[in-house]
Computed example of a mutant assay.
Amino acid sequence: MPESKNRFPLHPILIVDDEEEILRSFSIALRTGGITNILTCQDSRDVPYLLMEKDPAVILLDLGMPHMSGQELLQQIVEDFPHVPVIVITGNTEVEVAVECMKARAFDYMVKPVEKSRLISGVKRAIELNDLRKQVQILRETFAQRDLENPDAFSEIVTRNQVMLSLFRYAECIAPSPEPVLITGETGVGKELMARAIHKLSGRLGQLVAVNVAGVDDNVFSDTLFGHVKGAYTGAEAMRKGMVEQASGGTLLLDEIGDLSVASQVKLLRLLQENEYFPLGSDVAKISDARVIVTTNKDLGKLRESGDFRKDLYYRLSIHQIHIP
């Protein structure tokens, strides 16, 4: 039952199947999608122990296994560990079985053979659900407390304003999340300082890499963020890493996101949705594990209405939003 040492997601994806080849192929497929923290299990009797010891983020569960069936396990998991999403993956094509599993509160039901894209997208949705549940719980606990746990992280922002102190508590709460953060406010209110505090509190081992995207055209945006391979264009005499790669394991801060062109918005959306990007001149995707924080002094609501800012990108960016007065 090997466990990956990588850390996306923070807690492992537990794959339970009695066939070693299935465990291997699912593990490889997930890793190509940037999901690298994987735990496999061939004996269904070991699952209760692994749930207690490893606290998996998501479980991929086969139904047809010896010793203890997948349906028995599903019932036990939803009763004892209701916070863990379970994706049932089986060769059983009977509709009645699928209906029973969904009634038993399985997160999803997939029939083998499963397309790689379907597997990756399903697991990522389950990870997001689990993260959001945990964040809601942390928010409840944090706002029930009066004091900050790590006030030193905000030492560069001098204030006694109660609204700002509430924002500090919220920032402390969302800092460990891998989801994007949108920070808004007028010029000079401390948006970048807030972003740096969030990075400091996140526990990420990588660095914070800041990029001002105001007035940057699409080609420069792509080259700056994604880098290029040798020969990508005239003058590209050597490979160059982009800011996304430099922010690996850390945080990518995009300043003045309200000024980003629509063409560049499409590329940023892909990065956020798929956690992958293409360096200029390359047809091989690279995986990104950088957390994205964006800032702006623009009203993105008005920009959405005018069509100058994509609605789907705004939705992805505003999962966590901080407005600094």
Rank of each mutant, 00 (worst) to 15 (best):
residue 308 D to S: 15
residue 243 M to I: 03
residue 265 Q to T: 03
residue 264 S to P: 03
residue 237 E to V: 15
residue 233 Y to R: 13
residue 288 S to W: 03
residue 250 G to R: 01
residue 275 N to I: 05
residue 265 Q to N: 04
residue 274 E to H: 07
residue 245 E to K: 11
residue 308 D to G: 15
residue 249 G to W: 07
residue 267 K to W: 07
residue 252 L to S: 00
residue 283 D to M: 14
residue 257 I to M: 08
residue 253 L to I: 04
residue 286 K to S: 12
residue 273 Q to A: 03
residue 310 R to Y: 07
residue 239 M to H: 15
residue 276 E to M: 10
residue 258 G to Q: 10
residue 259 D to S: 09
residue 278 F to T: 05
residue 241 K to P: 05
residue 252 L to M: 05
residue 290 A to P: 01
residue 295 T to K: 09
residue 250 G to L: 06
residue 306 S to N: 15
residue 277 Y to K: 01
residue 286 K to M: 13
residue 244 V to K: 11
residue 279 P to T: 06
residue 299 D to L: 08
residue 283 D to T: 15
residue 258 G to F: 03
residue 235 G to S: 11
residue 267 K to M: 08
residue 258 G to I: 03
residue 274 E to D: 10
residue 243 M to Y: 10
residue 249 G to N: 04
residue 257 I to Y: 02
residue 284 V to Y: 12
residue 239 M to F: 15
residue 234 T to N: 10
residue 238 A to S: 14
residue 292 V to S: 03
residue 273 Q to N: 05
residue 315 Y to C: 05
residue 259 D to I: 03
residue 245 E to G: 04
residue 279 P to M: 04
residue 248 S to M: 12
residue 247 A to S: 04
residue 288 S to I: 07
residue 253 L to R: 02
residue 302 K to M: 13
residue 281 G to D: 09
residue 303 L to P: 10
residue 306 S to M: 14
residue 250 G to S: 07
residue 246 Q to V: 03
residue 275 N to D: 14
residue 310 R to T: 08
residue 246 Q to W: 06
residue 250 G to Q: 01
residue 306 S to A: 14
residue 273 Q to V: 00
residue 239 M to R: 15
residue 301 G to A: 10
residue 294 V to I: 06
residue 280 L to V: 12
residue 240 R to H: 10
residue 262 V to T: 11
residue 239 M to I: 15
residue 259 D to V: 04
residue 312 D to A: 02
residue 292 V to N: 06
residue 259 D to E: 13
residue 305 E to W: 13
residue 315 Y to F: 13
residue 257 I to H: 04
residue 247 A to N: 05
residue 281 G to V: 10
residue 284 V to L: 14
residue 282 S to K: 09
residue 286 K to T: 07
residue 277 Y to N: 00
residue 256 E to Q: 02
residue 311 K to L: 14
residue 314 Y to N: 00
residue 303 L to H: 11
residue 280 L to P: 07
residue 283 D to K: 15
residue 237 E to F: 15
residue 246 Q to P: 00
residue 287 I to W: 07
residue 305 E to N: 14
residue 260 L to C: 09
residue 294 V to N: 01
residue 288 S to F: 09
residue 269 L to Q: 03
residue 233 Y to H: 13
residue 299 D to M: 10
residue 249 G to M: 04
residue 307 G to A: 11
residue 263 A to H: 13
residue 256 E to K: 02
residue 237 E to K: 15
residue 283 D to H: 12
residue 278 F to D: 01
residue 251 T to W: 02
residue 310 R to A: 11
residue 308 D to V: 12
residue 261 S to W: 08
residue 312 D to I: 02
residue 286 K to I: 11
residue 301 G to N: 08
residue 252 L to T: 05
